[in-house]
């Protein structure tokens, strides 16, 4: 098989679309998941403002959404997607189900990051007369930032993996290319190139994320 210019262009588009879906979904995912994770950690029975009802509601919501297979979720929320984006197919439309799938996952990671913060430091802030909002903004999120950044790295990788399934609804991206050429047309070279590009992207995210979290951590050295 001859590698043509069009194929190169297709790969460039694929990378662009994958990055668009992954980065945008991660961004919106954190917009929803960060407050959710904070609320989970704060209302936990060992949190700074325990509230069993709020905790349970968030807890169950997170579990339900996380247990629905992504493909089913994608189809299930199509009406919502259409309402928000104007249509239920294409790259932009894929961002909606990706965000919905990512938010509770991100919420759980934020929750666990915040739960790692030393109780003693929180108690010290309370003894100084700090309110709950101050403790969240100035103690919890600051002390947990290394762990939160590691979470972002993991989230990017996972969402990139999900985005590959978006080909089903014509979402585009590298995953779509790999499926169309490799699975339906048996053109394995194209599939291989797309998969290698996916691996490279994940590798880049992982390396950058870990480097940043180590650089920002003041505990070692």
């Amino acid at each position: 098989m001859e590698w043509t210019n069009e194929m190169t262009m297709m790969m460039v588009d694929g990378v662009r679309e994958t990055l668009f879906m992954t980065l945008l979904s991660t961004f919106f995912g954190y917009l929803l998941g960060l407050p959710m994770g904070v609320a989970l950690a704060v209302t936990d029975k060992n949190g700074i403002r325990p509230n069993a009802v709020v905790y349970k509601i968030l807890d169950v919501t997170a579990n339900v959404v996380r247990s629905i297979p992504f493909l089913i979720l994608l189809i299930l929320i199509m009406p919502v997607t259409k309402l928000l984006v104007g249509r239920s197919y294409g790259t932009a439309a894929t961002v909606v189900p990706l965000t919905v799938a990512a938010a509770p996952f991100i919420g759980r990671m934020i929750e666990s990051s915040l739960n790692e913060v030393d109780r003693g430091v929180i108690e010290a802030a309370q003894s100084m007369g700090a309110g709950n909002m101050t403790i969240i903004m100035r103690v919890l999120l600051v002390e947990a930032r290394t762990s939160i950044l590691v979470g972002v790295t993991i989230a990017l990788g996972t969402i990139l993996g999900y985005s590959a399934m978006a080909g089903i609804v014509g979402g585009g991206g590298l995953g779509d290319i790999a499926m169309r050429y490799g699975y339906y047309r048996y053109e394995e070279e194209i599939m291989l190139v797309a998969v290698i590009l996916l691996v490279v992207l994940v590798q880049i995210f992982q390396t950058l994320g870990m480097r940043m979290s180590v650089k920002l951590d003041r505990r070692q050295r």
């Binding site: 003693g120 108690e123 010290a124 003894s127 103690v139 600051v142 002390e143 290394t146 951590d217 505990r219």
Partner: peptide, 13 residues
């Protein structure tokens, strides 16, 4: 004010 056995300083500051 209060001080503690394990100091309880912000480790990232």
């Amino acid at each position: 004010a209060m001080i503690f056995q394990h100091f309880n300083l912000l480790m990232q500051k």
